[in-house]
Design a protein around this nucleic acid. Structure first.
Lengths: 335, 335
DNA sequence: CCGGCGGTGACAACCGTTTGCCATGTGTTG
DNA sequence: CAACACATGGCAAACGGTTGTCACCGCCGG
């Protein structure tokens, strides 16, 4: 039982024990087809009985592959990322990769710097909502395999959640409830998603002959909800679409404080359908995004390109649909 | 500018460029005091200008240290862990460690297995609410430096959140509101926290001459709220303390479905104060736990024991206080 | 003027695996 | 039966650092 906690077992020990060369042990363990069934079995048995555990750093040094993928987020604090973390975690685990978590704290320099530094210990990275300028992104993609989420740059594979299409649905919904003054609550300007959502909103509103207003931009975080709610109220709008659920949730709190009834006085719709959107007060009407699935997809895209050295299709981009989930934060105009 | 993307720069290149030995370069870079200011400066300048980036696997192979710490959780999906992820992430980053995320999917075997397999690529691990039996935990701690959170086992450093003390507060609160039939909603039996909380509840209730009931156990997850709410209602209690906020939140939803008014018909208090507890309907009275801080503490404990080979104090255990945050899910008895 | 000492840097031996290349032995084919 | 292809396993060279040991240097005090 007790194998003596001294020096950990190496393939050399196994080689000695079975009377073959270390190279054979190595192959038996990592490329089993390369060795005859008989020896293979003998070696594997020995490995098992000696409680051999491979040494990842050594493996990485020799092979150049680390079996580790990083998920890079701009702020672990944001519940939006919880879904990503879940999705990537699941899929990475299934694919036999370790999951590294990197927080860039909303700084593009940090993002470049950290990825650059860690690139040798990573097989690839998934960029959740990168703040990077396109050229920097492409440059990075040259150093290390990348897949972006909600960030579409030519040449870098990505999965994007089609919130803009959902926004159109949201606008339909609000318009059909009688709203005419609908305002967009803008998030951080560098956010690709924010831009896309605002564009979509403008387009949808125009199609109804309505003008588009927006308030903001506001910094990420639920705290922004306060300022956002006040701004929306001052704008005189009867309905709003918020950049994301965090904003919307924050607004709900503030509106309640100010005695504004939702949806009687103001309808609000969020984006993403994060944890909490369904049990807030009132429950939030929002664009449900398949965030977890996005994470899984991103991993699939990444590892697909990792294993084969087969020339992978150039610009792999998958877009995931969203749909409007109507709950109780939107309702007919009742002035 | 363009240093030619060919072969990455190694310390050997730097050595060649500066005319010193590789060992000197190595020391100049990782143990600067070991080399004279003059050469040190020269080497560092060269490294900088050649855009040298150390190769972590090589470093790890040679030194045995990986500068990586894993956070092990039983289920990434649980919002309770979001706080831990945040806390550990912050502190690890500050200490210059990489953050690996491991999900054991609620399985003790998985937990042991994964940790055992990855131990060589980790400098240590933080166990968030481990499901492991004490002896297994101690055994693992022999293989790799460990710090547990909310799991107190002799010989393994840990940080525990003193929810039990908080439970006493919660009971005071409910009793003073006039409640006499208070039930505990039990979580998974293997959960250390669950046991501790139930014990605390029993104790507190007895001190008031009240008997303690409990319903459950229920499996982790918000979904359990439905069954839990029904069970509590059937028990005839007028107030309940739930194992955690996830349960409590789930119950709130169910109670609302059933037309039960909270707190008029039933008071509910949760544990942990996770994201969402403050904006649920009604906002949840709960035991606010410093989860993020716990994560940070755990990291501090861990890395403290890592750097020095100084004999660290044997049983380091820090306990963090909780306090009751009264919101709107608790109120006077109104039968 | 000499012995010793602290500080600096070089040498070389690892760390544990992977992998290209080659030697051997076996079975297949003409 | 000879020649050849192929499957199998061994050898040894990386991979990119870290670190123990030692030689050398100039400096100091005696």
């Amino acid at each position: 039982m007790e194998s003596g906690r001294r020096r950990p077992v190496t393939i050399a020990d196994i080689a000695a024990a079975t009377g073959v060369a270390v190279s054979t042990v190595s192959r038996a363990l990592s490329r089993p087809s390369r060795v005859s069934p008989a020896t293979r079995e003998r070696i594997q048995a020995a490995a098992r009985s000696m409680d051999y555990v491979p040494h990842p750093p050594a493996r990485a040094l020799a092979s150049g592959r680390t079996r580790t993928v990083a998920l890079v987020v701009s702020d672990v604090t944001n519940p939006f990322y919880f879904g990503m973390i879940r999705g990537t975690q699941q899929q990475l685990k299934a694919a036999g990769y370790a999951h590294l978590l990197i927080d860039t704290e909303d700084s593009a320099e940090h993002e470049i710097e950290m990825l650059h530094t860690m690139r040798r210990s990573l097989d690839g990275a998934i960029l959740g909502a990168s703040r990077l300028p396109a050229r920097a992104l492409v440059a990075l993609a040259g150093e290390i395999p990348l897949v972006t989420v909600n960030r579409n740059v030519r040449g870098v594979p990505s999965v994007v959640i089609d919130t803009p299409a959902g926004i159109a649905q949201a606008v339909e919904h609000l318009v059909s409830l009688g709203h005419r003054d609908i305002v967009y609550v803008s998030g951080p300007t560098q956010s690709w998603s924010n831009q896309a959502r605002w564009q979509a909103m403008r387009g949808a509103l125009e199609r109804h002959g309505l003008g588009a207003q927006r308030v903001g931009p506001f910094p990420s975080g639920r705290g922004s909800g306060t300022a956002a709610a006040d701004a929306v109220l001052n704008s005189g709008a009867t309905a709003c679409v918020a950049f994301n659920d965090l904003f919307a949730l924050g607004m709900l709190t503030r509106l309640r404080e100010r005695g504004v009834r939702v949806p009687a006085d103001l309808s609000v719709v969020g984006c993403d359908d994060i944890f909490g959107a369904d049990f807030s007060n009132p429950p939030l009407t929002t664009l449900t995004a398949p965030i977890e699935q996005a994470g899984r997809m991103a991993v699939s895209l990444l590892v697909a390109g990792l294993d084969h050295r087969a020339p992978q299709p150039q610009r792999r981009t998958v877009v995931l649909p969203t749909y409007l989930t109507v709950r109780e934060s939107t309702g007919p105009l009742t002035d």
